[in-house]
Amino acid sequence: MKQQITHFIIGILFGIGLLLSGMTQPGKVIGFLDIFGNWVPDLAFVMIGAILINSIAHKFLMRRGRPLFGTGFNLPSKKDLDRPLIQGSILFGIGWGLAGFCPGPAIVSIGGLQTPAILFGIGLVIGASVFIVKKNQVK
C-alpha cells in the first residue's frame, strides 16, 4: 500500500509539472516540433529544467547505492541499439507530431474530459495491446 501511495503522490506532482510546463496543450507541442514554421521554443525549457534537476539527483542517488523504500535501483540493462528501439521511437514521433500528445499529458487531459485526449487514449491502449499480443505470440 505504501508503494501505491508514493506512486500516487509522485503522479500528482508529475501531473502538475506537465500542466505548468504547457505539455498538456497540444498546440504548444506541435508549435515546438514545427521548427521550420512558426517555432514555439518553450518546450525546450521543459526538457532543460527536467534534465537539469534529474541528472544532478541521479548522480547523487547512484552514489547513495539504493532507494529509500527498496532494495536496489531498477535500471535497464540493455546498452546496444536495436531496430525495435529506433523503429518504435519513430512511430511514436509520428503519432506525437500528428496530434500533439505524448502518453503522460494525454492521461492528464483524459482526466480533464478532453475529447481529443480520450480518442487518443483509446488508440494508445489498442496500439500498446496489439504490440503486447504480437510479442507474446512470437514467444
Partner: peptide
C-alpha cells in the same frame, strides 16, 4: 487523433519508452 494514439501506443511499447 485515434491514429496518433495507435502509433504512440504501438511505438512506445516497441521502443520501450516515451
Amino acid at each position: 487523433t485515434i491514429l496518433a494514439g495507435l502509433l504512440v501506443g504501438y511505438g512506445t511499447a516497441m521502443g520501450n519508452g516515451c
